[in-house]
Design a protein around this nucleic acid. Sequence first.
RNA 1: GGAGGGGUGGCCGAGUGGUUGAAGGCGGCGGUCUUGAAAACCGCUGCGGGGUCCCCCCCGCCGUGGGUUCGAAUCCCACCCCCUCCGCCA
Length: 421
Amino acid sequence: MLDLKWILANLDDVRAAMAKRGAEVDLDRLVALDERRRKTIAEVEKLKAERNESSRKIGQMIKAGEDATPLRERVREIGERIKALDEELRGIEGEIRDLLLTIPNVPHESCPVGEDDSANRVERTWGEPRTFDFEVRDHVDIGEISGILDFERAARVTGARFVVLTGQGARLERALIQFMLDLHTELHGYREVLPPFIVNRKSLLGTGQLPKFEEDLFRVDPPGDWYLVPTAEVPVTNLHAGEILREEDLPLRYTAYTPCFRSEAGSYGKDVRGMIRQHQFDKVELVTFARPEESWDVLEQLTGHAEEALRRLELPYRVVTLSTGDLGFSAAKTYDIEVWLPSQGTYREISSCSNFLDFQARRANIRYRPAGGGKPRFVHTLNGSGLAVGRTLLAILENYQREDGTFEVPAVLRPYMESRL
RNA sequence: GGAGGGGUGGCCGAGUGGUUGAAGGCGGCGGUCUUGAAAACCGCUGCGGGGUCCCCCCCGCCGUGGGUUCGAAUCCCACCCCCUCCGCCA
């Protein structure tokens, strides 16, 4: 969420930013609501000051043995007016809050301006897509021939957009998770956490999935305000919700493996074949809490950490900067890392690394105390996939495929595929 | 699920109706002392909001939301969370 004061002081900038995103935001209503709000505050606080003053006087009168009944009556009336005004004020502030929660972040000036992903800017490309001297298969065929992917039985057990990994497939998924966690903890200095896979409504408000994107989530029935995690970003970022961190501890870096659950509402017909778009997939996430001054550097580092996983797996990829129209709700800037998929002859998203500035921190109330003392400030939060495990497995099958429809295991993963018993 | 205990400032911890935004301690910041550091001593040290706002004034905040009262951290109700014991259970 953006700072109300800042919005009001920079109305034109905010208007321009929303236009770049293609977002409809009623800023005029916000301005009107704020005026009403301040007017009501002035009124009710004047009455409260009067009540406090009179109550003090009543106390003194009673102590002095005087009759305070008339004054008491008057203060009682003031109290009733205060109650009414307070209620009105709560209503106005609620409306303002609801509105603020639906305003997306302001894109950073370095984001290319455009309506959709066609305006995304390619920053760099790594690796040379392999040339095949046979007809390439997609991961669905390779998975079937190798006997490690079973979409039919997954459909029987659950439904469409699920997969069963079996034998070496399950082991490869596990190896990838282990490899990525090892890489980020041992080499990149992240702290590993294993968070709950169910979160409450407040956490989803904190990171920005709610209130606008409820239809993307799976809600857990009995409690009503519990949801399956759509990404580890939610539980891990909210780890420090409401806290005041110490500046000395920043940047705080966490990595977490979780499955991710997405309803994929509105994506009917897209990527229906295979495991590109599933209701459940594994992901290793990177989350960083940073000082405001360092967050742009941290975004570069974090993106580099995700890239390192692909380099070690020797999978060709490119990094693109999302255009203003393609940017997620909470992000100020996002790099997507896209891996090469031979079957599609194109690069597909395998990681998304974003700087949210203080947008999430303000929603989730995550602050830090400056080292020299002073007022708490909002931290900057960042996160990125390091990487989406299912898509990585898929990319391995395709890029490491053999002519007979089987595949090779990347060298870096072989130790993880071997028995240690 | 049952019984009991508890949620107060960065942290610990007093406080059961009237200058208590809150004793005391720890931590932090500044100072005295010291060649330097430590110790000791002194001072300062919550968050948010409003006001013609860099001085100052005012309002709110003691888990959350209601209620009682002229006045609530203190009394009442509901809810949330934590702890202990019992039951159940992977």
